[in-house]
Nucleic acid binder design. Structure first.
Lengths: 172, 172
DNA sequence: AATAATTGTTATCCGCTATATCTAATATCG
DNA sequence: CGATATTAGATATAGCGGATAACAATTATT
């Protein structure tokens, strides 16, 4: 159950899906997607898989998944919070957040500290190593991952895309 | 292992995630997302979950998941294809496509027919019932699901979003 | 003080994804 | 032609993410 296996496999396994247009002069010509190409959900999922794939590649040296990166980011911006609060804002269910934290804590990226006010809850803190990894991850994400997205889409489109997705994630 | 359970559960379970902004005057105010809101992959995944959720709701009367709908669509637009071809263009691995087809076939929505040319492969065909369900599904998707998306985003934005997502799914 | 609610946790289940392997059937090639 | 390789579908299996129920410890409510 090495931590590295998780992120590394995610990079590797995603390759299987990438040959989807499949048919590099293979079978009998490309199939008709039909109204599938007009289905927003379909393109949304396809794009999301690609983007996550690229994220994993870009941040592979640090062995961080998108979910782990988001946790570190949130811990940094919101010190003094407990597991329930962090998990909730990320849309992670508390039971599933336990193993995630175990993995991060076992790598000495964050730590649980029993709260003095409420001895039920764990205050989550980034370790020094966690802060260092986060800083490196931020640079990789910005300079490799997000930069590539901006390059492909164009800066204006990239911004517009972000805005629309945020609207969908909220007002939908 | 009723088929209905699958799609019905998908609708129900998605509700758990929807209370993510969580904190309707609950704990201690909203947490800071920080650069998370600028991460395209993050918004992409969040939006995708919401859109799939809405898809499931809109098409719930027909008990079709997005993946099942995409299969029916593809079978309709590409008659005479076998399992490998359909699965490949949808990014589904052949082993995993078997159970999917079993479910659709058990509901009499499609059928496998041994090919006469190549007796290894199964030609996939929509049944009459499959065509009828697909027709109803298309209407629900267009008039309820996609219509709501267009309403929220605006027609021009919706089109631009589709275009950008398609570009990401291809050229990325 | 008794009861209810909350936090973290464990166990468990389901669905999607991935790999290896098997068989039947076909293709390739000496 | 016959031996070998390849392909299509299927099975088994493993892993991860997501979901629910239940429990102990603690805190809140009444």
């Amino acid at each position: 159950m090495t931590v590295s296996k998780t992120a590394a496999d995610a990079v590797r396994s995603s390759r299987a899906l990438r040959k989807e247009p499949v048919d590099p002069a293979g079978d009998d010509s490309m199939l008709q997607l039909g109204e599938l190409s007009g289905l927003l959900g379909y393109s949304l999922k396809r794009a999301q898989l690609r983007v996550f794939e690229d994220f994993l590649r870009c941040v592979a040296p640090l062995q961080l998944t998108p979910a782990q990166f988001s946790v570190l980011l949130l811990l940094d911006k919101n010190p003094g919070r407990n597991q329930t609060e962090i998990a909730n804002t990320l849309g992670i269910l508390r039971p599933n957040f336990v193993a995630m934290l175990d993995a991060l804590e076992s790598r000495d990226l964050c730590a649980r500290m029993r709260s003095t006010n409420d001895r039920r809850s764990h205050i989550l803190v980034l370790t020094d190593r966690g802060r260092a990894v986060l800083a490196r991850a931020k640079k990789l994400v910005a300079n490799k991952h997000e930069a590539r997205l901006i390059e492909v889409l164009g800066p204006a489109n990239h911004a517009a895309l972000l805005e629309m997705l945020a609207k969908l994630a909220q007002e939908f």
